[in-house]
Lab assay of single mutants.
Amino acid sequence: WVPDSEAPNCMNCQVKFTFTKRRHHCRACGKVFCGVCCNRKCKLQYLEKEARVCVVCYETIS
Rank of each mutant, 00 (worst) to 15 (best):
W1C: 05
W1K: 15
V2N: 04
V2T: 08
D4N: 09
S5T: 08
S5E: 07
E6L: 05
A7C: 07
N9M: 09
M11K: 08
N12G: 12
N12C: 09
C13I: 00
C13K: 00
Q14D: 10
Q14P: 09
Q14K: 08
Q14C: 13
V15Q: 11
V15R: 07
K16N: 07
K16Q: 15
K16G: 12
F17D: 02
T18N: 12
T18P: 03
T18H: 06
F19L: 13
T20Q: 11
R22H: 03
R22F: 04
R22P: 08
H24V: 06
H25L: 04
H25T: 01
H25Y: 02
C26G: 02
C26M: 01
R27F: 01
R27M: 04
R27P: 05
A28H: 08
A28R: 11
A28K: 08
A28G: 06
C29D: 00
C29S: 02
C29F: 00
C29R: 00
G30F: 04
G30M: 05
G30D: 05
K31V: 02
K31D: 15
K31H: 14
V32R: 03
V32N: 05
F33N: 08
F33P: 01
C34G: 01
V36G: 13
V36M: 07
C37A: 00
C37L: 00
C37N: 00
C38G: 12
C38P: 01
C38S: 09
N39H: 07
N39M: 12
N39A: 07
R40S: 14
R40H: 13
R40I: 04
K41L: 14
K41R: 13
C42E: 14
C42A: 12
K43M: 14
L44H: 06
L44K: 04
L44Y: 03
Q45A: 08
Y46L: 14
Y46M: 14
E50L: 10
E50A: 06
E50C: 08
A51H: 07
A51R: 08
R52N: 04
R52P: 06
R52H: 04
V53P: 05
V53Y: 05
V53M: 06
V53E: 06
V55Q: 13
V55S: 11
V56M: 13
V56T: 13
C57M: 01
C57N: 02
Y58R: 10
Y58H: 12
E59C: 09
E59M: 08
T60P: 14
I61Q: 10
I61F: 10
I61R: 13
S62C: 10
